[in-house]
Amino acid sequence: MFRFYWFTLFLLTAIASHAAYVLFVPGRTFDDKLVQTVGPDSSNRFLILSSDQAQQLVPASGPSDIVGLCRFDLSKGPVVLQTTPPKGFWTLSVYTETGTQAYALTQSQVGDSFAVELTENPDIIKKFLSAVDATQAEQEAISNEGWRISVSDKKGLAVVWVPLADHVFRTAAEARLKTSRCGPKSAQVSGG
């Protein structure tokens, strides 16, 4: 009987520590490394990474690739990302704080310039209220212009990755991407 008790205790501790590690350690490590790479005051701003920073962040990215990112924080409301990537192939990937990919877009799905509104997934009470309050639902539908991405966490990361066909295009392509903006929807959005 006592052996069974110890084994149960061992098993429960193992499951708890396994789950805690998988769910929290990689996300925490990622956030720390990201802050080390781009700085602590990088929230709700659009940044263009240096070549070294880009190679640290995006697996298998080349030295001439351009990577822009926005560390969004939805605690004060929706965040809008407006970007004008250079012509050619590019991807936009939106990740939650834990690294789960919430959305991905490529240049074949949108035009040259686009805006994405990032919002937090409404909790069950908000969903219920919007279902019973037709006015609120209509207002949300009216404001739902362009791309709208709901993410499960308050914080996350939007990454624009642009591989270049030739190094000589880098300056022009970077200048074009630098016009991107990321910031709270309620305020004037700030750029990098």
Partner: peptide, 10 residues
């Protein structure tokens, strides 16, 4: 993400 990298695009 444990290596400080984002997963590849979907």
């Amino acid at each position: 993400i444990e290596q400080g990298r984002v997963p590849p695009p979907a």
